[in-house]
């Protein structure tokens, strides 16, 4: 298997967001990190690109992403006061979409900041 090296990778485990990490990736796994702290190292090694989970679950049963998106949209649209929460482990681009979604469903949007 070929080893690919990413230099100056960014770690998103904690708020420090260190951007000087070297990652050695082999296939679906990151096998080695350079410059990361112990927390960052385990973060990178624990997130693999393997297909470990079903694409989506509806009521605990495997489903397609298309059906899950439709079900999610229906639940959120039907609610009077939906909550959009989390946002801390997703990108700013995804957060922007989340604010847009919260606006059109008339919901509350909140992050880990409120904890």
């Amino acid at each position: 298997m070929t080893l690919s090296i990413v230099k100056n990778a960014t770690c998103t485990f904690c708020g420090c967001v260190c951007d000087d990490i070297e990652l050695h990736a082999e296939g679906e796994k990151i096998v080695k990190t350079k410059g990361a702290c112990s927390l960052g190292e385990s973060w990178f090694k624990h997130h693999t690109a393997e297909r470990l989970y079903p694409d989506a679950l509806i009521d605990g049963k495997p489903a397609t992403v298309d059906h899950a998106v439709e079900a999610a949209a229906n639940y959120l649209y039907d609610a009077n006061m939906p909550l959009v929460y989390g946002l801390s482990n997703i990108t700013c681009e995804a957060q922007r979409e989340a604010v847009f979604l919260a606006e059109i469903i008339g919901g509350v949007i909140d992050s880990h900041t409120s904890l």
Binding site: N80, P82, V84, Y85, G86, S88, I90, A98
Partner: peptide, 9 residues
């Protein structure tokens, strides 16, 4: 609230 969307939490 009567529905929740949890993103990466």
């Amino acid at each position: 609230n009567d529905a929740a969307l949890i993103l990466g939490a």
